[in-house]
Nucleic acid binder design. Structure first.
Lengths: 342, 342
DNA sequence: ATGTGTGATTTGAACGTTCAAATCGCCCCA
DNA sequence: TGGGGCGATTTGAACGTTCAAATCACACAT
């Protein structure tokens, strides 16, 4: 059984239709849209009226073919570990689409072929088919193969995550070290003297920066840094005689792990133990007590990335350095009490 | 200060370049790609070699202009409540891009203009500019204005979430009621006799279906349904004399709320109280004990949506009904023990 | 009256591809 | 020997737009 389609999608209106309706030539319609200062005010009004009446929009394919501009930027998603997806991906994408849209650009989603980490094929395909003006890369490493490939091809890109010395500095990132340093300061202000930092034991630079930032600031403040157990068992950390009164985590799920371990040990979060997270996911608000966490400024990041990319597209000189933004510490009850007196 | 661009992006190779290199005409190159059966095997080999050597890919803009095919589908994101984002958005998008890619299509992200729920302008713009062949809509309501608008314009679409009687049945969804019914059966099998269902008090059809499915199956199995307090206070639910020994939630974060309330009441999840969630987010694995949850088959959903859309694009007859898929119950320790004896 | 400058508008061409029709080469049969 | 038929290939046109150059209308100065 079949359903009839509402309409057979009649031929769309073209610039010629508008020109006919307004009694002018194609080019005048084109100018009305692209260079209004060149057309007489009266004509402008007449053509604009015709455009509105007919609902005309330039065919993007035709326009692209002629001008070379695609008005589309590709977003190359990182290859997520399905067990540990980037919790901010969705929010970042929304911000990115809005930021690009504000500049008249669309976002095309790209994915590396299955099992391929460097995504070379995906980049080649979309560049060769001339479907995007440039690329936005996320979760970029200093020597990221995607950035390297884009640079090699000479296609503009902007990276969320800083690029290393061998690559163009077209990056935007938050200052991860400063973020966790702020968490350390916050805990010190609340009176904590013995603190710990827990998180994934990976060499991912942004995670390493979070750890370093916390460690450095804690040392600067004269806090005692309790090392996290190598085996990742949080209960032994919380059980030790000189246990920390505050623990910072490199993401919200890791903070949840701390909550769980603390409960097992009979410690009351907020009263016996302060905790901070990272990312400020919805989880942070649902935990009891609600979790202090570091919120990433996703919209400013997206805007900065788009700006950086468009600068290249317009051939303007690009800054010699990347852009670094601050994360915001959202203080909630998990860390707002003072530590138990020893 | 400026950084030099690696390469000035030299002119890309066109079909004429390949034709020249292979000593044939444009059209033969085109046929090699689009209708290989029409070209002589020897020629085919020669042209293919030239294509590979020069790294030729047809310019998608030129091709679209000529054929009308964009090979791109638009994804119209739902307007998320920033406080309660769809936890599966990122995973679904990945699956969608892969499914579309397998059919030679790209995914273009669209967003309604700020403050606009029906997204009419966004659809109009992208359709008028002929940038997409069709639309994928997510979180679709029975009378969804986006689907209605797409149908009115006659542009193909496929909806994640079922459409109502007034709209074409181009939808794919999971059987929400069957999913929670399975959870109810699972709990009954474990020996639970008094159960409850908690979740958002919204009229969203998929949430209502989850509640109904659970309630109906519980009734059918002769279980006692403990009503959730109207004020949403889970502690009163767990404190009542005839308290449930098992609680199902309509999403994982709501399940977390149950964990929190249970701990406040001194109940041990898994031993004193069984809990199930929905969505199988990473949270489910991090909770202690790990949370039983319903996992959505995102890749099959994405594939079904793409199939449904491409069917319309090809002008083939479309089924009179939507497609309904099953969610998988992932059993974890939060619900695998038997209830306390009364 | 004639040229000159200028703003507004039009004309022809081109972007790179594929469609439709035309041409070519060759075998086969009357 | 002259078509007819057929597979392989080429040619011309067209998709809808914008660029570059040409034309037009008109005011102004000489």
């Amino acid at each position: 059984m079949t359903t009839p389609e509402p309409r057979p999608a009649r031929r769309a209106t073209t610039i010629a239709d508008v020109a006919g309706a307004a009694g002018v030539s194609r080019q005048t319609v084109s100018n009305t849209l692209n260079a209004p200062h060149r057309v007489h005010p009266d004509t402008l009004a007449r053509v604009t009226a015709a455009i509105d009446r007919l609902g005309y929009r330039p065919d993007q394919s035709a326009r692209s073919l002629r001008t070379g501009e695609r008005r589309t930027i590709g977003y190359l998603a990182p290859v997520d570990d399905p067990h540990d997806p980037n919790p901010l991906m969705a929010g970042f994408l929304e911000a990115l689409v809005d930021a690009a849209g504000a500049e008249g650009h669309h976002v095309l989603l790209l994915r590396p072929a299955a099992g391929e980490r460097h995504a070379r094929a995906a980049i080649d395909a979309v560049v060769a088919a001339r479907q995007v003006d440039g690329l936005i890369l996320a979760d970029v490493l200093p020597d990221d193969p995607r950035a390297a490939h884009a640079a090699r091809l000479g296609i503009p890109f902007a990276a969320f995550g800083r690029t290393g010395p061998g690559l163009p500095p077209h990056w935007v990132d938050i200052d991860n070290a400063a973020a966790t340093a702020e968490a350390a300061r916050h805990l010190a202000e609340r009176g904590h003297r013995r603190v710990a930092f827990v998180g994934a034991a990976t060499p991912l630079p942004w995670l390493a920066a979070r750890r370093d930032g916390f460690h450095r600031e804690a040392a600067r403040l004269g806090l005692t840094l309790v090392p996290a157990p190598a085996d990742g068992d949080l209960r032994t950390l919380l059980r030790s005689p000189g246990r920390p009164t505050a623990v910072a985590a490199d993401n919200d799920l890791a903070a949840l792990d701390i909550y769980e371990a603390a409960r097992t040990e009979g410690l009351h979060i907020g009263r016996d133990l302060a905790v901070t997270g990272f990312h400020d996911t919805p989880l942070a608000r649902h935990l009891r007590p609600p979790l202090t966490s570091l919120r990433l400024p996703l919209r400013p990041i997206a805007t900065a990335l788009v700006t950086r990319l468009l600068t290249q597209l317009r051939g303007a000189p690009t800054p010699a350095e990347g852009v670094e933004l601050r994360a915001d510490l959202i203080v909630r009850p998990s860390s707002s009490h003072h530590p138990p007196s020893p």
